[in-house]
Simulated scan of single mutants.
Amino acid sequence: MAGGSTGASGRAGGEFVLKPWELHGEGREFEKLGGELTKAVTALEQGLAALGAPWGADRPGSGFATVYGQARGELVSGLRGLAGRVAGVGAGLHTMAARTADADSSAAGGFGATAVPGAPGVPGATPGAVPAVPKDMSV
């Protein structure tokens, strides 16, 4: 979310800005990264399996196989879990985007305004359009 979805204003109190369309874009990036990591883990697992068991059945080889087998399983399992969590961040960003758009629409309705047709998060949305929400709600 480099340089887009959040930021501070020049005011002393600052502000927090969420742009649902940018959150969706970042969500897609995280989902893509999760998928790429899953493919890399699968390739690693296949590569390790192709190596077979070259260490032999003697005492040192058996000792190595015991430790290696456990470590290999933990590594692959951990990497698969990481890939799932990275993709899950993407799903979370999509949820955040939808909830932000809903909250903006609800807030606009509470002030007697309506979201501009075609605004982000509104059916038939036009990217880049801004909902009609008061800019400064301070009293």
Rank of each mutant, 00 (worst) to 15 (best):
W21E: 08
E22L: 13
E22W: 10
H24N: 08
R28A: 08
E29M: 04
F30C: 01
E31G: 05
E31D: 07
E31Q: 08
E31A: 05
K32C: 06
G35P: 09
E36D: 14
L37N: 06
K39F: 13
K39G: 14
A40Y: 13
T42D: 11
T42H: 05
T42C: 02
A43P: 06
A43T: 15
G47S: 10
A50I: 08
G52F: 09
W55N: 03
W55C: 03
A57D: 12
R59M: 15
G61D: 05
F64E: 07
A65V: 11
V67L: 11
Y68E: 12
G69K: 13
Q70D: 14
Q70F: 13
A71N: 10
R72T: 12
E74C: 02
E74N: 07
L75C: 02
L75M: 06
L75Q: 03
V76E: 00
G78K: 02
L79H: 00
R80M: 00
G81I: 00
L82F: 00
L82H: 00
A83G: 00
R85V: 06
G88N: 04
G88Y: 03
G90Q: 02
G92E: 03
G92D: 04
H94A: 03
H94E: 02
T95L: 04
T95G: 03
A97D: 01
A97P: 03
A98R: 11
R99E: 11
R99Q: 13
R99K: 14
T100E: 06
T100V: 11
A101S: 10
A103I: 00
D104F: 10
D104L: 12
S106N: 05
S106Q: 10
A107L: 03
A107K: 00
A107D: 00
G112Y: 09
T114S: 15
V116I: 15
V116A: 15
V116C: 14
V116F: 15
P117Y: 13
A119P: 09
A119G: 12
P120Y: 13
P120N: 12
P120C: 12
P120A: 13
G121C: 07
P123K: 08
A125D: 01
G128V: 02
A129L: 08
V130S: 10
V133Q: 03
P134V: 05
K135E: 12
